[in-house]
Nucleic acid binder design. Structure first.
Lengths: 123, 123
DNA sequence: CGCTTTTTGAGATTGGATTATCATTAAGCC
DNA sequence: GGCTTAATGATAATCCAATCTCAAAAAGCG
């Protein structure tokens, strides 16, 4: 039976409270505010279970460990800040992707990642 | 002094002959056609040196080891075939990327990756 | 061809992320 | 509050890409 533990509540809450996808270590740091002593193993276990339950989605980025965000959001993309390494959500989607697909290729999905400085780091 | 060895020729040629970015193992397989016995260590060493010389660029893709392609090409993006795992070059670039950037964020670059089936795998 | 020095290949090693182990802790039912 | 069992945390183990080690091979100069 699946128990409702302090650790799991803290992890779920850390992700809910963030408005951006978090890495396992970001989850650990944020969740420790509500559950001191939380271990990284529990973070990985819980993230994995939440992904299996489809409560979370893995956000894969080039050359980076995955981040995690709640499922059920509208289609969106991400901005990766080169200075603080945080990843932000972007609304919307560029036009003309289908136009890029070569003849004979079947387009199923796409990823767009913008790079630069977030508002906090751009100043 | 930098020597011109069979191994390096085979590696450079494998990349030249491919019209798409290759992973280290793809380079190994392709280059072995011209240099049997070639080792993976030499592939990694040579790729690293070619990147340092700016003859090659690393192509980073979400959740994947990097691929390598010749530098000096026009700005472009990539198509990742889910069936054969090969990566193809795409011409062109979608519109409206700057439009996605939140206020206060400084956009420096971007990546676009399309996913689906390549012509060989779509049939 | 000799000789020097770079390069190579096999296999060991590293590094970083993730997972497994297992004794201890704590949910949650009575 | 007891009791059963799932969950936890520290740490060891694993995984896999990439790098290092070092004896042996080969570039390339004279």
């Amino acid at each position: 039976m699946q128990r409702d533990t302090q650790q799991r509540r803290a992890i779920r809450r850390a992700i809910e409270d963030a408005d951006r996808p978090l890495s396992p270590h970001e989850v650990l740091d944020a969740a420790r505010a509500h559950c001191q002593g939380l271990g990284i193993a529990t973070v990985y276990r819980t993230l994995k279970a939440l992904v299996a339950d489809e409560a979370l989605a893995q956000v894969e980025l080039p050359g980076e460990p995955p981040r995690y965000e709640a499922t059920g959001k509208r289609h969106h993309h991400h901005f990766h800040c080169r200075a603080c390494d945080r990843v932000y959500e972007l609304d919307g989607c560029p036009e003309g992707l289908r136009h890029l697909t070569p003849v004979g290729f079947a387009l199923e999905s796409h990823e767009v990642v913008l790079y630069g400085r977030c508002a906090a780091c751009a100043s």
